[in-house]
Amino acid sequence: MTRTRHVLLLDLQDDPAAIAAYRHWHRPGGPPAAVSRAIRAEGITALEIWHVGDRLVMLMETTPEFDLAAKAVRDSADPDVQAWETLMDRFQRPLPFARDGQKWVEAERIYALADQPSCP
Rank of each mutant, 00 (worst) to 15 (best):
G43F: 04
D115P: 06
P16A: 08
A69K: 11
R55C: 06
R74H: 04
A107E: 04
W25R: 15
P117G: 03
V57Y: 08
A83H: 08
A46I: 05
P120R: 15
R90G: 10
L8P: 00
H6F: 00
M1P: 11
V57P: 05
I39Q: 10
E65F: 05
W25M: 11
R90N: 10
M58K: 14
Y111S: 09
P94C: 11
K103C: 08
L47Y: 10
G30N: 01
A98L: 04
I19V: 13
D115T: 10
R27E: 12
L95Q: 12
D100L: 11
M88K: 08
F97C: 04
G30Y: 01
P96H: 03
A18H: 12
P64W: 03
L59M: 11
R3M: 11
P64K: 06
P96Y: 03
I110E: 04
D100A: 15
Y22C: 03
R90C: 05
Q82S: 02
R109G: 06
F66N: 01
R23K: 13
Q92A: 12
Y111L: 15
A70H: 08
M1W: 09
V81L: 03
F91N: 06
A77Y: 08
E48K: 14
H26T: 02
G30W: 00
E106R: 10
T86W: 07
S36F: 11
A69H: 10
A98Y: 03
L113C: 08
V52K: 13
I39V: 14
A33M: 03
A77L: 15
A18K: 15
R37L: 08
G43C: 05
D89Q: 12
L8Q: 10
D115R: 12
V105L: 06
D100V: 09
E85I: 12
V73R: 14
H6M: 00
D115G: 09
E106G: 02
D80Q: 09
H24L: 07
L59P: 01
D80S: 12
A69C: 02
V7E: 07
Y22L: 03
E85Y: 09
D54M: 07
I110H: 09
T63W: 03
V7G: 05
K103A: 15
P117E: 07
L12Y: 03
A98P: 03
L47T: 06
W25Q: 09
F91A: 10
L56M: 05
V81A: 06
D100H: 14
G29K: 01
R5A: 07
L87K: 15
T63D: 11
D75R: 14
L68G: 06
P79C: 01
E61R: 11
E85Q: 15
K103W: 14
L68D: 15
Y22W: 12
P96I: 01
E108C: 08
T63R: 12
A18T: 09
A18Y: 08
A46P: 05
R3T: 15
S36Q: 13
W104K: 05
H51D: 00
G29S: 00
G29T: 00
V81H: 02
P117L: 07
M88G: 01
R40H: 13
R37V: 07
H26I: 00
L9E: 13
P94G: 13
